[in-house]
């Protein structure tokens, strides 16, 4: 069984700065890490590998050269190999262009039975890339997967987290699964895994390698236009009730709640 896991390197910081001209994130000078929600996808892929003879996991990511660290983290956890899509022309891609680039690479890398992605990345917060890859590769997308019940005989049965419960879905393989946090508890890599990851060569592919024209990648290949970027301001319109006379304070609070129809 061939498994691919799509991962992203994200800023390991809550203080994300935006480039107001392009509407994209300023990624330099930030600590980066493997997207925390991708850890669940990596873990689930490894669990399948551990139960399946001859299964092999390839980690695929698009990003700047240093995104290789995110791929190596996944390899340290137990994945076998890694592919980094890195090219200046990939820069500034929206979710559509990213999915297109990833899909082109996956096609070049041969057929996968299962493709995993995290629910979403903690920086962009869209959750679109996984399903979009499935669409572009014309395979079923199983989103919000909280449990894999069964795999085999060319099909998979999963539980999807939905509002108020879960639904059970059966799909043919190959398929793409985007998984939610509830699915597992990701392992921490051990020293042996880290050393193996350090020694594993990650394959780098450019636009030419995946057979894409630069007009269809990166910012130029992205249909999304960011019109305006601004930081939301937080403000509260508070009222302080003087509590020195408790009876009076209670009356005022009751009046307030009645006026707002809250009681």
């Amino acid at each position: 069984m061939r498994i691919a896991v799509l991962v992203k390197q994200v800023p390991a910081s809550d203080k994300v700065k935006m480039d107001e001209e392009t509407g994209t994130m300023v990624r330099s000078a930030l600590d980066a890490e493997l997207n925390p929600l991708d850890l669940y996808a990596v873990e689930e892929a490894i669990r399948i590998k551990e139960k399946t003879n001859g299964a092999e996991i390839t980690v695929v990511s698009m990003g700047p050269p240093r995104a290789v660290d995110a791929i190596k983290e996944a390899i340290a956890m137990g994945c076998d190999s890694g592919v980094l899509l890195s090219d200046k022309v990939f820069g500034g891609a929206d979710t559509w262009a990213t999915a297109r680039t990833l899909s082109a690479a996956l096609e070049k890398l041969g057929t996968f039975d299962l493709i995993f992605s995290g629910e979403r990345a903690t920086d962009g917060e869209t959750g679109q890339v996984g399903p979009s890859v499935a669409a572009q590769l014309d395979m079923p997308a199983l989103t919000y997967v909280s449990k894999i019940r069964q795999i085999g005989d060319g099909k998979i049965v999963v539980e999807r987290a939905i509002e108020g419960g879960h639904e059970v879905v059966e799909s043919s393989l190959p398929a793409l699964l985007s998984v939610v946090k509830e699915i597992n508890e990701p392992r921490m890599p051990n020293l042996t895994g880290k050393i193996r990851a350090r020694k594993t060569e990650v394959l780098t592919m450019t636009a030419a390698d995946v057979g894409l024209d630069s007009s269809t990648t990166g910012l130029t290949g992205s249909p999304t236009r960011v019109v305006k970027v601004f930081y939301p301001s937080m403000s509260r319109n508070g009222t302080i009730v003087d509590g020195r006379d408790p009876d009076d304070a209670v009356q005022k609070l009751l009046q307030f709640l009645n006026e707002k129809a809250l009681v």
Binding site: A12, L39, E73, M188, P189, L191, K194, I195
Partner: peptide
């Protein structure tokens, strides 16, 4: 990497069950 490998290997020699490496913010915080 060199420090982690040296200390980690020494711990294994001294009877550790395993050596886990938290190199990302998420793992470290956990």
């Amino acid at each position: 990497d060199e420090l982690a490998e040296k200390a980690g290997t020494a711990c294994l020699d001294m009877g550790a069950l395993d050596v886990f490496v938290a190199s990302t913010k998420t793992e470290s915080e956990k």
